[in-house]
């Protein structure tokens, strides 16, 4: 019975996760409340210096404390219709609050339930579609995340170790681990990793050379976000980590499709190049769209604040564009490098 219907039972997992996160308030030390009643008390129109019209809405909110002393509290929430920095409260919203001078105030939204529920939906979908390949894929993600967190920890706790060295090591470990999950621990894994590392190193070197020669003209390193250390370091770390998956994808595709073919060296190289040529365009597109779409909110903000299109592109998108172009170098370079390595390995085999 269970065996036959276990797939349907999986659907219960996201529901269970959602409910668990909705009732986890006792785990938090900050006061958590659930909104029970909302009345919009005032709404006023405001116009900024660029004659953008927005609405400012004040809500009177009643909420029930879910941890600590419990009981009902009252607070007000003011938000703009455009929601750049604030948000409306709805009945059922769970929020963090703070008590200042005996009066409760909204601190932030509690977002763990939506995050964990979507994550669980993804896991269920992976189980249903990937079946027995699910565990391999999940393990690859979990291990890479763990390595990344470990490296960040080492980076911030050890000022003496060169950060460039730490993150270069991280990139190599990422490559080896991910390649091992794609093809297993064997010679193919070494070829894929070698080609990936070589392509990435060449791409970054070429990018670095071009940026240095042009004096970073039009690329503003000071616009790197969330800077806590040298912005230049973060700029290149983002390129290397960001491009890794796509470069591995190219190298893996070529190696896996050429490896079983019993043909001459020259033909192996030619077939590898053909596979690579077919996949590189869409892959460059994937990275480019991730980089550019991520700047939408800021770009609209710039334009609505009276900046010209050219200026907005340069200051908001310039950095991401440079990064996706250098990543694209890596994707393109991986094609001849992997094809060449595959042609060479046959000779060793024979």
């Amino acid at each position: 019975m269970i065996k036959k219907y276990w797939r349907w039972l999986l659907i219960l997992l996201p529901v269970a996760t959602f409910l668990a996160a909705r009732f986890d308030a006792p785990l938090y030390s900050t006061p958590v409340a659930q909104v029970t009643r909302v009345t919009a008390s005032a709404s006023q129109t405001e116009t900024d210096s660029n004659s953008n019209e927005d609405r400012l809405i004040t809500q009177r909110v009643q909420a029930r404390l879910l941890n600590g002393p419990g009981g009902t509290i009252a607070l007000t929430n003011t938000y703009t219709a455009s929601q750049a920095l604030d948000f409306p409260l709805r009945v059922g919203s769970q929020i963090f609050v703070t008590k200042i001078h005996g009066q409760y105030q909204l601190k932030d939204d509690k977002r763990d339930a939506i995050l964990l529920t979507v994550a669980m939906c993804l896991i269920v979908l992976m189980i249903l579609v990937l079946r027995r390949h699910f565990w391999v894929t999940l393990a690859s993600i979990v291990i890479n995340t763990a390595i990344f967190l470990l490296v960040v920890h080492v980076d911030i706790s050890n000022q003496s170790i060169n950060a460039w060295l730490i993150f270069s090591g991280l990139a190599i470990v990422f490559t080896l681990v991910t390649a091992a999950f794609i093809v297993g621990v064997n010679r193919l894994m070494l070829i894929i990793s070698g080609a990936t590392v070589a392509a990435t190193v060449l791409a970054v070197a070429l990018g670095y050379a071009i940026l240095s020669l042009t004096g970073y003209n039009g690329v503003h390193l000071e616009t790197v976000k969330y800077v806590t250390q040298a912005p230049q370091l973060l700029f290149y770390v983002q390129i290397v980590v960001g491009a890794l998956g796509a470069v591995l994808d190219v190298a893996g595709d070529i190696a896996v499709s050429v490896y079983p073919q019993a043909i001459g060296r020259r033909d192996k190289f030619r077939n590898g190049m053909a596979v690579g040529r077919a996949v590189l365009g869409p892959l460059i597109g994937v990275l480019m769209m991730i980089f550019v779409a991520g700047t939408f909110a800021e770009a609209v903000l710039w334009l609505r604040n009276g900046n010209a299109v050219g200026q907005t592109i340069e200051w908001v998108m310039g950095l991401g564009l440079a990064q996706s172009l250098i990543s694209a170098f890596g994707i393109v370079l991986a094609v001849p490098l992997t094809s060449g390595a595959m042609a060479f390995v046959k000779q060793v085999d024979a």
Binding site: I156, I182, V241, G245, L248
Partner: peptide
């Protein structure tokens, strides 16, 4: 499964690149 696996890698690292600064 292999196509999904490699696509997940591309996306995972693609977004992680941008993430790295935030994590630090």
């Amino acid at each position: 499964a292999e196509i999904i696996g490699t696509a997940i890698n591309t996306l995972f690292f693609g977004f992680f690149g941008g993430f790295s600064a935030l994590f630090i």
